[in-house]
Design a protein around this nucleic acid. Structure first.
Length: 350
DNA sequence: AAATCGGGGTA
DNA sequence: TACCCAGATTT
């Protein structure tokens, strides 16, 4: 059994190390709960280095809750373009509007804050502890990895229910004087020391408290079941330019993958002839001879697109059957484009 | 509980 | 390649 002062020693070593060694990150320079909230949403499944420039631009453009609450959606999505998981942006705006109109600020109690759209168990605990010093668990992938090693927990961290086990562990250990440093300390440790592979145990401030280190099992934990690999889907893109130098673009459905984003006409088939039929019908035009322009693979979390893009001769324009339009190259910049579309665009030099 | 939802860094 | 990242929502 662990000594009675074990928790206190662990706590103090962790928070002491964090306060001394933490990285200087933009969202650690503010106490604005709204800005901290933004950072936590952006950081969901997204690396620190990726988020930094987005956070800077976003907090500048939408500096307070009112700015974001009533911003036009296309501008919001443009600011999020390239960051991925686009429902995060829409949920954040919806939640900020709700919070602004209901409380006039970011609510300072977990029950109220946790009910907002896009705020799950992690974000609730993170914002409450970091912005308001409320002792609440903020269990992310880092925290599960770190605590699985320290406490020798071998439950499968891919299972939804396992997170609750770690939340209980955090509440048992958390520093009630400084829950912000405790939670961020666990995450910081996971990011820079207690890494998924080859953890730097000799640099670890809490290795004397670590069960896995003592047993030489740090590479065996955490236990995580594999997810099955993605299925491949062929996609045929047909890029059409009219005599005025305008490009035909279409908008994706407002639900599902890449919701509402713009792309060159695309059909979910590997057969060019079939793609021509689908796209001709969809846009009410006739497509001429195809010429292959670029071929690439685009990997999402849960599926893979095998993309072949063609250019085609100038079509005869009929009656469009969906939301679509012809855009000059400079106007393409105003549309929110997903990465596969950007790849096609880059290959064509548009 | 499992599937959906992006993109990029790392070994 | 395969894994993982300051996860949430829907089915």
């Amino acid at each position: 059994m662990k000594p009675l002062n074990w928790k206190e020693g662990f706590r103090d070593s962790l928070t002491g190390w964090y306060r001394e060694e933490k990285r200087d990150l933009p969202w650690r320079r503010t106490r604005n709960p709204y800005h901290i909230w933004i950072s936590e949403v952006m950081l969901q499944q997204t690396r620190v280095d990726t988020v930094i420039p987005y956070y800077a631009r976003f907090t500048e453009r939408f500096s307070d809750m009112k700015e974001l609450a009533y911003a036009p959606e296309d501008e919001l999505m443009k600011m999020w373009e390239g960051l991925g998981y686009y429902s995060r942006a829409r949920n954040l705006q919806s939640a900020v509007r709700e919070a602004y109109e209901t409380y006039g600020e970011v609510p300072a109690d977990p029950e109220s804050f946790g009910k907002l759209k896009g705020v799950g168990p992690y974000t609730e605990g993170a914002v409450m502890s970091i912005a308001y010093g409320i002792p609440a668990p903020a269990v992310d992938g880092n925290v599960m990895r770190v605590l699985s090693r320290i406490l020798l927990i071998d439950d499968d961290i891919a299972k939804p229910k396992t997170r609750r086990l770690f939340e209980e562990a955090v509440m048992d250990l958390i520093d009630k004087e400084d829950p912000s440093s405790f939670n961020q300390g666990l995450m910081e440790l996971g990011a820079v020391i207690c890494t998924p592979r080859r953890p730097k145990c000799l640099l670890c401030p809490v290795r004397e408290f670590c069960g896995a280190y003592h047993e030489g099992r740090e590479e065996e934990l955490p236990v995580k079941s594999k997810k099955k690999k993605q299925q491949s889907f062929p996609h045929t893109v047909i890029v059409l330019q009219d005599s005025g130098g305008r490009w035909l673009m279409e908008q994706r459905p407002d639900e599902g993958l890449l919701a509402g984003m713009w792309q060159f006409p695309t059909a979910e088939t590997g057969d060019p002839e079939e793609a021509v039929r689908i796209i001709s019908e969809r846009h009410g035009l006739s497509v001429g001879t195809l010429e292959e322009a670029v071929r690439f693979r685009h990997v999402f979390t849960h599926r893979i697109w095998e993309v072949t893009a063609y250019t085609a001769s100038v079509p005869e324009v009929g009656t469009p059957a969906d939301r679509s339009g012809w855009f000059l190259p400079e106007d393409l910049d105003a549309l929110t484009l997903p990465n596969p579309t950007k790849k096609v665009r880059a290959a064509l030099g548009v």
